[in-house]
Design a protein around this nucleic acid. Sequence first.
DNA 1: ATCGTGGGCGCG
DNA 2: AAAGCGCGCCCACGAT
Length: 566
Amino acid sequence: MTLPAPGAERRIALISVAPQEYVAVELDGNAEEQSRTQLRADDLAEWVAAVEAAEAPRWILRTAAETYASLLRDGVRIGRSHDLVLCHAILRDTASVTAPLPASAGWERREPAVAIPSLFDVFEEASGDEAIDTTLDQYRAQRDVIAAAPDGRLTLLCAAESAGGLIAEEMRVAGLPWDEAVHDAILTETLGTRPVAGGLPSRMVEIGDRVRELLGDATLHLDSQQKLLRALHRVGVQVESTGRWELAEHDHPVIEPLLAYKKLSRLLSANGWAWLAEWVHEGRFRPVYIPGGVVTGRWASAGGGALQLPRSLRPAVRADPGWTLVVADVAQLEPRMLAAMASDEAMARAAQGSDLYAGVVASGAVATREEAKYAVLGAMYGATTGDSGRLVPRLRKVYPRAMALVDAAARTGEDGGIVSTWLGRSSPRPSGEWMRLQAEATGADADPAVVALARRRARDWGRFTRNFVVQGTAAEWSLIWLAEIRHRLQQIPEVFAEATASGPFARVPHLAFFLHDEVILHVPQEHADAAAEAVRDAAATATTRLFGSFPIDVPLDLRIAESAEK
DNA sequence: ATCGTGGGCGCG
DNA sequence: AAAGCGCGCCCACGAT
């Protein structure tokens, strides 16, 4: 991702002014209108492609989820954008500047389900000229907020967020190569023979019958939590819930088959044959990504459970013939971000190499890798009890700067304050209800029960803000990583071999999947090494863009393989 | 029939 | 071995 100085790049706002009608407004260095081009929807893709090839401007879009999807369907890709909806969400709440962007309902994200039909709703009572004025005013307001932030952090964040908006649409169009036969084989192997009409697969029937027999109820409906709980009590298993963890603590013949049944049941309902039929078409799984869909800046997804694919199905992710996958993830991204944010050199030393937890053990803070893991997770999540909570104070001695950062974030949250990520995405204000409860608890004659509740809610919010700064900064690293990968892949020439898929990514290496700290690329075999190098370079660049010369390792686990199986 | 909620569990 | 953060989705179940 290159970030030219403001004014040094061409910027063109692409504005929908009426159904089937667009206006492209070219802006000068002061974001003043320079020229205007009227476009019919039918001509849009061709015009954008020509301008992109000639000038590679930064396209100012209402949001990629609306405009870019249709361009991609017409085979047109763009390089850079400024996504007004995505950036509005960041800029209206940022604590990085004294005067954040005024919130404006017209620039809120819309539900994906209505995004496409409502593409023109915002303008239904406005003339085309009003739509243009509204868009340009919003862009100028955003530009002013971005420029007011120190160190260009919001420039980087908004550029990366906008790139994420493009990438999410591109990954949806490209899809994740998915081998339906492999998926089907895994299901049959795990669940048993597929039922012909309704009913459950054979292994589930067998195991379910065994569970019912051991519970002494031949007609028990195992999917009913309440009935199952009562049946367990009847045979003397005194659990309070039917959760996996609590069941595992009990010793009764029914536990083992019951846990096995629950595992199978989960696979069937979440990613069984019905999921396969609904979400995989022509060898591609196409999830709906929602960039910035989580308050911390992480991506969310809608439909298909894209971010919850069970590891057991990874073998079904298979490259097309003549293509390969580049699969890369970062180990322990969040604590690495924490070490760098806090300039904690001791923690950064522990983070050298591929296993941060081993480094924590080497520092002498804890005795085993497992303890290191629970201590570090506990530090970032705010654990206070259990083994994890007991280990956290040891880290405070060895990594005082890192711990001071998360402890301060927790205190700020407990006091009702706002915290921010490294680049300036800020946490939401606590709710009015939360504020009222805290106010009620500070009175001299406050009910002790109210005080206790307020304390608990304050700590809850403190754990959220504690984690926000770390999870959100990790999301920023990943976003820049993604954008840099995309930028590098665009330099790799297309292949001339016969394409195995259709669409704008049929002949080029492309991102196919993203999951918080992991990417999967789908790449013509001849470009596998170049793509892998792009992924590594991009990671190094992401780290430098965020933390300059601070020495923090962010090592990748990267492999080139036909399948995503680990 | 449809909606909201809670339990449970997959992912990071 | 822990239960501390962030999600989305499925199911049952009770309310509408």
